[in-house]
Design a protein around this nucleic acid. Structure first.
Lengths: 297, 297
DNA sequence: ACACACTGTCCAGTAAAACTGGACAATCAC
DNA sequence: GTGATTGTCCAGTTTTACTGGACAGTGTGT
């Protein structure tokens, strides 16, 4: 069963003539007749009684028509979803992780805004969980595991992790050679909610995630503070490799225990719109995804 | 946009692999790849980010998937409507005009019931309006104009009319030669509701319907009484030609004023089921329609 | 009553897809 | 590294979609 056949059926019901229906759909009346017969044979029922003067639906035809009409309307709407005006307009409210916004998104923003001059963007950066619905945000980029909710999540990929220390730290404490050395080392404790979790070194043990408890000098709840603590030589941090790559190359950070990275972090877009996503938001999300793509494995 | 492409999209989303999706749909992976690219080009967006190891939907792809899923489910349901078990079973309650049931339907019933041994038919015959919903009737055949309502009506065609008298009438009053003669004649007054309408001779005046008031000896509210009155020589009756054909041929009735027939009567099936018509009812309606077909113009 | 215009169907041939199998570079597992 | 597997590309082949014209049947207009 194909949509074109249904379209023909509806045109036929509306116009009451194969010739007219064929003309509306832009095909020859021979073909229209053929397709109708093919559909009837496929379904095993007669859909229209045909005299030379009128084409009238049978009861079966009538039922097909009644159910096909909303179906086709929905299909057309779906097709129309992806073609609209060339330029976007309106306001989009977005929330991004601080570091990611600064390094990956904001530098590319001028291109997007130049493409869509009527677009207004309201970009907040935070690492805390944002109540999308309450704050009226259109979409957020989330790094880390997702908590299931009524929101729609789209996984963009995963970020591989790296364990890093600063040269100042290496000078004072040395570099760990294996997991056993970690008992003599310090980790910077990242705890978004500042709750009671114990500081630990997370690493992959085959396919499983292990937590190795460690000493910690400092607990922080923001990514910026996390990295700043590392620069200051306060301990090991575990961060996405993409964000550390530049610092590693420049020698501002040193990777340790490369054989024991933390579990890779999923990176996702989350949005509160159900399936009726405004076009401008959809396009923005697509654009965001293209920015993320080169960073993920 | 075609349903198969959407089906591929869904399979792709479920399985995360072009090879696997192609296998599920029973086509080569080359073709699956081609079709995906064709769809992406048609919509003008990338639907999946493809690495050699994983195929993941983009935000656009995710939206398409979410909306395509119910669409396809509905399409499948629609296709399934017309194929079911070969035999029908269950009870069908039908109401037919008395004369039509006796002459056209009941003689053919054995064939239908032989075809579907599990089918129970409850056939009531009446000419009054039946409250389908209250009485739990599955469908009725209605001859005459329809009153719009919440019920679904399917027009099967129109019945051409004939004006008839009995030989007894002709003997006593003679035959009218033209409309002017009717002042000297009698008509049998058919009034389903026995209300205050005046007896009249209905006839076509070009494309318009004219009512010519006439004298009447008797008013009846059932088709059987209507015809009986005519046989008894009480006046002219206006009936569908198909029902009178046999009597006319046998000389039991005589056609008068053949150039001035009453307005042709639409004949329709009316049923209270919305768009969810049980299969047995649908098949019965189709069967009924095939019976009606040779009788209508 | 007659020719006429027009209906839907049938029947060739033709153009256009749908589809396939195999080759290929890229990538992950071992 | 090596091998298996991924998605894509590229030929050729099969299948289908489609067309124009012929046809019988049927209302319309004169």
């Amino acid at each position: 069963m194909d949509l074109e056949a249904l379209r023909l059926t509806l045109a036929l019901a509306d116009l009451g003539s194969i010739t007219a229906a064929a003309a509306r759909l832009g095909l020859s009346k021979s073909r229209a007749s053929q397709r109708l017969q093919a559909l009837e044979q496929e379904l095993g029922v007669h859909l229209f009684t045909r005299t030379t003067r009128a084409v009238r639906p049978t009861p079966d035809g009538e039922h097909l028509i009644q159910r096909a009409r909303p179906l086709l309307a929905e299909a057309d709407e779906l097709a129309a979803l992806f073609q609209g005006p060339r330029h976007l307009k309106g306001k989009i409210r977005v929330d991004l992780p601080t570091a990611f916004a600064r390094t990956a998104v904001i530098p590319k923003l001028p291109e997007l805004l130049a493409l869509h001059p009527q677009l207004e963007l309201e970009l907040s950066t935070s690492d805390r969980r944002v109540d999308l619905l309450r704050e009226g945000v259109d979409c957020v980029l989330r790094i880390g595991p997702l908590h299931e909710s009524s929101l729609t999540a789209i996984r963009l990929g995963i970020l591989t992790m790296a364990n890093c220390v600063s040269p100042a730290y290496a000078l004072r404490y040395g570099l760990p050679r294996d997991l056993g050395d970690l008992a003599q080392h310090w980790i910077v404790h990242y705890s978004p909610t500042l709750t009671k979790e114990e500081p630990a070194f997370e690493h992959l043990e085959g396919d499983f995630i292990s937590q190795l408890p460690m000493r910690s000098l400092l607990t922080v709840n923001s990514i910026d503070a996390y990295r700043a603590a590392c620069y200051a030589g306060l301990g090991i941090i575990q961060v996405p490799r993409y964000g550390a790559a530049e610092d590693l190359a420049a020698g501002r950070l040193i990777e340790v225990l490369p054989a024991h990275p933390a579990a890779p972090m999923p990176i996702s877009i989350v949005h509160p719109h159900g399936r009726q996503v405004p076009r401008r938001v959809r396009v923005f999300m697509t654009w965001l995804a293209t920015l993320v793509e080169p960073l993920v494995s």
